[in-house]
């Protein structure tokens, strides 16, 4: 076992032990805080611990030419699964198959590094539709294909998550009650400060790996919330299940000679049903370093706790 995996295993054990000491509230389904349902977001991880499966998530984007690299179109096919260990503690795993199509040159295909995560929800206030959780993401270095740029080093990202619905606004602002915000902030810590490469002619190049601030948030306006709790404005299927959303997914380099922020702004629509959720978003780069042109991302997401409430949709431990 590597030092990184040993650290993660230790953390998981500590969180599992501590979670058993904390009294949990009534059982709730995925993404609820009181009467608020928060949908699963695509570009920014949500604050929930849940039994859920995203299969597939498909994303398409274009990276402009730079530093001798040609313009490249990238299409990603991802699968992510999350499983509750206890009511408030969960783990997740993800894999992404990438296809890179440069304007000149051969198309490259392969898996990106595998990802693993652990998350613990430590605060929930139903009346104020508020959730807080903390977790660690682990990008497992060397588990993917170098052909598609998978890093040879790992990155550990301790992350704090939040969710807040605005159902507690006064009656004078009742049409703002369907609004909600979820978000995250974390520090990406690479397992190596840099990678040294020796070329065929003996020339040495060093690529430095900075710490990065990962941050993002999603602003949602829930039409189901409007219909059921504020005012019936006459929406019917499928519009009464739709949640317009704008996500902001950002990364800021902090050190080791790197600087600047990259990221995307993703406006889109989420349709949330009983068992599945369908989402589609445009992906708009915030600057030229983040991409070129407007891409898109789409996802089919399954709520395993609704699909299999008495088997794999339950926490492994506890109720």
């Amino acid at each position: 076992m590597t030092s990184w995996s040993a650290s993660c295993a230790s953390l998981l054990a500590v969180l599992a032990a501590s979670s058993s000491l904390v009294a949990s509230g009534p059982a709730s389904a995925h993404g609820f805080a009181g009467k608020r349902f928060f949908p699963a977001t695509l570009a920014t991880d949500d604050p929930f611990v849940a039994d859920e499966l995203s299969l597939p998530t498909i994303a398409h984007s274009k990276q402009g030419a730079s530093d001798g690299s040609p313009t490249t179109r990238e299409t990603d096919f991802s699968v992510d699964v999350s499983k509750r260990i206890t009511e408030n503690l969960g783990v997740g795993f993800g894999a992404t198959y990438k296809r890179l199509q440069p304007d000149d040159g051969d198309t490259q295909r392969g898996f990106d590094n595998l990802a693993a995560s652990v998350k613990y929800k430590f605060y929930e206030n139903d009346e104020h539709e508020t959730l807080l959780s903390a977790g660690i993401d682990w990008d497992i270095g060397g588990s993917g294909s170098k052909r598609v740029g998978a890093e040879s080093f790992s990155t550990i990202t301790p992350t704090a998550f939040f969710g807040k619905g605005f159902g507690d606004l006064p009656a004078e602002a009742k049409f703002l009650r369907p609004l909600a915000v979820t978000g995250l902030v974390g520090i990406g810590i690479p397992s190596r400060a840099g990678t040294t490469t020796i070329g065929e002619e003996g020339d040495i190049s060093v690529e430095r790996h900075p710490h990065t601030l990962k941050w993002g948030f999603a602003v949602e306006y829930s039409l189901p919330y409007l219909q059921a709790f504020v005012q019936d404005v006459g929406l019917r299927e499928p519009f009464n299940r739709m949640i317009p959303v704008v996500e902001f997914a950002m990364s800021t380099a902090l050190d080791r000679g790197a600087s600047g922020t990259t990221g995307t702004v993703n406006p889109g629509i989420i349709w949330a049903g009983q068992y599945v959720q369908l989402s589609v978003e445009a992906v708009i780069p915030v600057n030229s370093r983040s991409g070129s042109g407007v891409g898109w991302i789409a996802q089919l997401h399954f709520f395993l706790d609704d699909l299999f409430p008495t088997s794999i949709g339950r926490p492994l431990l506890g109720k």
Partner: peptide
Amino acid sequence: AFASAVTLVSVAGAHAFLDHATPAVGS
């Protein structure tokens, strides 16, 4: 494709959410 998928899965089931009421919500 998104609209078609929504139409297909709409028949699969629904949340135990309030669909409508009389008197209507906020009326």
